[in-house]
Design a protein around this nucleic acid. Structure first.
Length: 884
DNA sequence: ACCTTTTCCTAT
DNA sequence: TCAGATAGGAAAAGGT
């Protein structure tokens, strides 16, 4: 009844679902008709999950440059996108989006211009907007609530704003109807909440903070919506400031831009999850581990291991111990470390075979029956009459028992002196579990080869990945110390020490065989790098296979060495840092560049460092000609020195750990910028875990680096700021480059020192500074002293240096020619500027003067630069007028 | 100038 | 980083 009447308000009658939604299917009772074919049911279960997902964005009118603040700023529009994952036959619309607008002044304004169809609901006041919104939620009854960022925006803002208006939104959004008075919160409860920053919870629904999920999903330097949608959806979205959005909203002619902006975003958030199949994969893991959907995302790996392990333990009548914190703290410290060889650091032209043990630690546990349930403790404790320390607990083995075990040869001793019974005495719970996991994974992989339907492939893939994950973290569970729920050093140490011994034995076996004539040059925990001097790659592959056979035969099942790849050539830098050209099969023609640990795979440098390094290595690997590398490097340096480098590639971005996440006095760019922002806007504080971008600018010598840190946005608005080319070259690019090139006897510092300096610098404009994004306000920033020293080439192109934009000689001696040159430059730059603007508009799809300000915008900095150049010529023209 | 500590991120 | 583990390298700042 309620829903029916609501349909009209929702304006859904024109929706693609001809008959309108079948209301009965909306509240979770999806009983299949009995006559439905089983096959179809099965197929549907694979293809559809019957979940309703509700993505939300809200538009807030803000004050000046400030971020939205629920204490002052009202919500004027709530945008949503709903996805129903059901078969078409269900008769429920699968994709719907809409907006609830508070427009007391101008109903319908903006919508007419839009050309985009948005289901709109109108409200007279903000309070009414909240009520309508609650009704929309009740109507769709979503299982999952989505927001790109839900702490300060979307759901978080709606809830906080609700409190200001006296509405308890968490209650209103909840699926559980809490009757009676609202749950009262004591002061203590509140303290508790603040201290642990409890995440947003809506009873009965799952709330997902998409950017946080993305942070775990992929490694990127930025997790803004624009950046994620570019990398996942390969789609550019414009970014607009709150100030611009507020301005655009106020004019009926431009309001549609705001509507479209948020509608696209609420849909985009849904599409990102869809593209990654995040819901599907998470449900798959939940089924696999036997835990709840949200627990897959919110809980750690211990929880997963425990869930599976206890399932295995129960039928065997085992109960897990629950040591207290004191007991855990009392446990002995682990003694064994994984084996990491110090690599022979150099450039290898010979093929280098990389072999590694497949799931070494799980194999150790299976192969030697290492488990809580099979461990008898340390050799020295055995056969005493007193209980001894064991894990976080105690254990006692009587002399009689020991005698019996010894006499019948029923025990094994791990390299760290811990005794386990053999598997025919008792098969350990963990070994059994791991064996099943590995076997299942093998079966799943086999099934993947048979079944080729994409949706099934996806499911099987995530299933086998989950199994691999589980196998790998099981060791961690036994070795966890401070956070561990049931740690046991004896078991953990045995696994590490046996793994170490296995690796060492393999290394010895490889080096001892004179037939192969090879050397082990590096190894880390479960891998060995074998140099094959003076032979071809084909031979290397053949020798590799022989090694695999020999080592595998030398170990118990299921321990298996695998030929992972052959590098040729490669550079071993240090432990955990190496690069090479990789061949995975003997008949592979084109190698694949692969790097581990070095700057090309790290996110703590700026992109230009990684790119330059990668390019250099590729040139080096392909041509083995250092002069070509040198030519490339010097060209890069020139580009940076002349200010022509792409500023986006100069942006560093590091994770912000929260205002309380640092030691007092910590000197961290992200913290420094945050403190500066907080002075003017308390809501501008980055979220914990957010990556804060920054650049390094020029400044007087002697200043610590931290004083030269600016946000990229400042670089755009403050024309006095210039990129610190010397920092980028000498501190950022050269050291990583040198770590590779010094190994072949080349010092990039020398290249730089002997470089011809004909660098021209970007002109700095003094007083006319009206930042492009500061709306021409008279906020002239007196910036770094560097701008006063700026001397540039004469604009007339005579080659003289001048601080007036144009030199006296040109003005006095041939004014006609000078004027012509300048006019020509003006028109050239004007064309260039218009061209750049066109590209920007093309990408953002919006009209003139409403370009985006996203740091991910491909032309943002080019635009700024073009604008400045044009501005500079204006300045020169003015100067010229006065002097002629 | 050298050493230590803190921070950040990666390999296994 | 209300919780798998440790090893490891490098940059920056500050102390001696």
């Amino acid at each position: 009844m309620e829903r029916k009447s609501y349909l009209k308000t929702l304006n859904l009658s024109s929706d693609e679902s001809a008959g309108g939604p079948d209301v009965s299917t909306l509240d979770g009772s999806f009983g299949f008709k009995s006559d439905l074919a089983n096959l179809r049911t099965a197929k549907a279960c694979v293809e559809y999950n019957y979940l309703t997902i509700f993505s939300l964005e809200c538009h807030v009118l803000t004050r000046g440059e400030l971020c939205p603040n629920p204490d002052f700023d009202g919500i004027v529009a709530i945008f949503y996108a709903v996805q129903n994952n059901v078969p078409e036959e269900e008769g429920v619309p699968t994709h719907v989006s809409g907006v609830i607008i508070d427009d007391m002044f101008s109903a319908d304004a903006g919508l007419k211009h839009s050309g985009v169809e948005i289901n709109a609901i109108h409200a007279e006041t903000e309070k009414e907007l909240f009520e309508k919104f609650t009704e929309v939620i009740k109507y769709w009854d979503p299982d999952i609530l989505l927001g790109y960022e839900i702490e300060m925006n979307s759901w978080g803002y709606v809830i906080e704003r609700g409190y200001v208006l006296g509405i308890n939104m968490p209650n209103a959004l909840s699926r559980l109807r809490i009757s009676g008075p609202e749950s009262k919160k004591t002061d203590e409860d509140k303290d508790f909440e603040v201290e642990y920053e409890s995440e947003l919870k809506i009873p009965g629904r799952i709330v997902l903070d998409v950017w946080r999920l993305m942070r775990e999903e992929i490694a990127l330097t930025s997790y803004t919506f624009e950046s994620i949608s570019y990398h996942i959806l390969h789609r550019r979205y414009p970014k607009r400031s709150y100030r611009d959005l507020t301005k655009l909203w106020h004019s009926p002619r431009s309001r549609w831009i705001v509507l479209e902006y948020f509608q696209l975003r609420s849909q985009g958030t849904l599409e990102i999850l869809d593209q990654l199949d995040l819901i599907g994969r998470t449900s798959e893991l939940a089924k696999l581990f036997g835990i709840q959907f949200f627990e897959v995302l919110s809980r750690g790996s211990q929880f997963r291991v425990e869930s599976m392990m206890l399932r295995m333990a129960k039928p065997r009548n085992f109960v897990s111990v629950s040591p207290s914190i004191q007991q855990r703290a009392h446990m002995r410290a682990p003694e064994y470390l994984p084996l990491i060889l110090e690599p022979e650091s150099r450039f290898y032209v010979d093929p280098v075979i990389v072999l590694d043990f497949q799931s070494l630690y799980p194999s150790m546990m299976i192969g030697y029956n290492y488990c809580f349930s099979t461990c008898l403790g340390r050799v020295e404790h055995l056969g005493g009459t007193e209980p001894f320390e064991f894990g976080a607990s105690q254990l006692m083995i009587t002399p009689e028992q020991v005698k019996k075990f010894l006499k019948r040869d029923l025990i094994t001793i791990s390299p760290c002196g811990v005794i386990f019974v053999k598997s025919h005495v008792r098969e350990g719970v963990l070994p059994r579990m791991l064996k099943e996991i590995l076997d299942t994974r093998f079966m799943v992989k086999k099934a993947m080869k048979i079944h080729t339907s994409p949706s099934l492939q996806r499911i099987l893939h995530s299933r086998q990945l989950g199994l691999k994950l589980m196998a790998n973290v099981t060791y961690g569970y036994t070795a966890a110390n401070f956070s561990g729920r049931m740690p046991c050093v004896e078991v953990g140490d045995s696994v590490v020490s046996k793994g170490r011994e296995t690796l060492q034995r393999a290394i010895a076996l490889v080096e001892a065989n004179p037939k192969w004539r090879v050397r082990v040059v590096y190894g880390d925990t479960d891998s060995i790098f074998v140099q094959v001097p003076g032979r071809t790659r084909e031979e290397a592959f053949r020798i590799g296979e022989e090694i695999v056979k020999a080592v595998t035969a030398d170990n118990p099942k299921p321990v298996k060495l695998k030929l992972e790849k052959v590098y040729q050539p490669c550079i071993l830098q240090t432990k955990k840092r190496y690069v090479g050209y990789m061949y995975e099969t003997p008949d592979q023609k084109e190698p694949v560049y692969e790097a581990k640990g070095i700057e090309t795979v790290r996110r703590d440098g700026c992109p230009i460092v990684g790119k330059t390094l990668e390019k250099c290595l590729k040139i080096l690997f392909e041509t083995k000609d250092v002069s070509i590398v040198k030519r490339y490097v010097l060209r890069q340096f020139t580009k940076i020195l002349s200010g022509k480098a792409n500023v986006q590639e100069l942006i560093f971005a590091k994770e912000f750990r929260g205002l309380n996440g640092y030691r007092p006095g910590a000197c961290v760019p992200a913290l420094e910028l945050t403190k500066k922002w907080k002075q003017t806007d308390s809501r501008k504080e980055p979220r914990k875990g957010e990556r804060v971008p920054y650049i390094v600018v020029n400044g007087p010598p002697g200043l610590p680096l931290i004083k030269l840190i600016r946000s990229p946005h400042e670089l755009i608005t403050d024309e006095g700021l210039k990129i610190n080319a010397f920092y980028y070259i000498q501190k950022a690019i050269i050291p990583p480059l040198n770590r590779c090139l010094l190994l072949i006897g080349v010092d990039v510092n020398d290249w730089f020192a002997n470089m011809p300096r004909t660098a021209t610098f970007l002109p700095a404009i003094g007083k006319e500074s009206t930042g492009m994004l500061t709306s021409g306000k008279a906020d002239v920033k007196k910036s770094t002293i560097s701008q006063y020293f700026a001397r540039t080439s004469c604009a007339a192109g005579c080659g003289n240096q001048t601080s007036d934009g144009i030199c006296d000689q040109c003005v006095r001696e041939h004014p006609q020619k000078t004027l012509l040159t300048i006019f020509n430059r003006v028109s050239t730059l004007e064309r260039k500027y218009c061209g750049v603007m066109k590209i920007c508009q093309l990408c953002c799809g919006s009209e003139r003067d409403t370009n985006c300000s996203s740091l991910d915008c491909p032309v943002l900095f080019v635009r700024t630069q073009a604008w400045r150049e044009r501005k500079h010529v204006d300045y020169v023209m003015n100067a010229l007028k006065n002097r002629m």
